[in-house]
Computed example of a mutant assay.
Amino acid sequence: MVADVEARLARAGIPAASIGPGGPRLDDVVHVGTMHRFKGLEYQHMIIAGVSGDLVPPSYLRKWEHSDPARHRRELQRARALLFVAATRARDTLLITWHGTPSPFLSDPR
Rank of each mutant, 00 (worst) to 15 (best):
G40V: 05
M46K: 01
S67V: 12
S103A: 02
P104N: 14
P15Y: 00
S52K: 07
V85F: 04
D68M: 08
I19M: 13
A87W: 00
D27N: 13
G53H: 11
L82D: 03
D108S: 02
F105Q: 06
A90T: 05
G50S: 07
L76H: 09
A10D: 14
I48C: 03
P57L: 05
A10I: 00
R89N: 09
D108L: 05
T97M: 08
K63N: 01
R11A: 14
R78I: 11
V30R: 05
G50K: 02
Y43D: 04
S103F: 01
L94W: 00
Q77G: 10
G20R: 13
M35G: 09
T34Y: 03
R91T: 10
T101N: 03
E42A: 14
E6F: 01
R110A: 12
G100H: 07
T101G: 00
P69F: 09
F105D: 08
A70F: 08
I19C: 11
R71W: 09
P57Y: 06
M1A: 13
Q77A: 15
A10Y: 04
R8Y: 06
A49L: 10
S18N: 10
P15H: 03
I47D: 00
S18A: 14
I47Y: 02
P21N: 12
E42W: 08
A86Q: 01
H45E: 09
G20V: 04
G40M: 09
H31P: 06
M1H: 12
R89A: 06
H36R: 11
R71I: 10
Q77D: 13
P102G: 01
V85L: 08
D27M: 07
Q44K: 11
A70H: 09
P109R: 12
S107K: 06
R11Y: 02
R11Q: 14
S59C: 05
Y43S: 03
A17I: 00
A16M: 08
P24L: 08
A81V: 06
V5H: 09
S59D: 10
L26Y: 10
S67K: 11
R73Y: 08
T34K: 02
V5K: 04
A16L: 06
K39N: 11
R73F: 08
V5P: 01
R91W: 09
W64H: 14
H66F: 09
L41D: 08
A81Y: 09
R74V: 10
L106H: 04
G22N: 14
H66W: 06
A3I: 07
E42V: 13
G33T: 02
D54W: 08
K39Y: 11
H31Q: 15
M46L: 15
P109I: 03
I19F: 04
G33H: 00
E42D: 13
R74S: 14
T101V: 11
A12R: 14
L95S: 03
I96A: 01
G22Y: 05
R78D: 13
Y60T: 11
L95T: 15
S67H: 08
R80S: 15
H31L: 10
A70D: 13
M35K: 01
H45R: 15
A7S: 14
A79P: 07
F38A: 07
D4M: 10
G53A: 15
P104G: 14
A17D: 14
L55F: 12
L61A: 06
H31C: 11
L83T: 00
I96L: 04
L61I: 12
G22D: 15
A7V: 06
T88E: 05
L95Q: 10
E42I: 12
S67T: 15
D108P: 00
E42H: 11
R25N: 10
P104S: 15
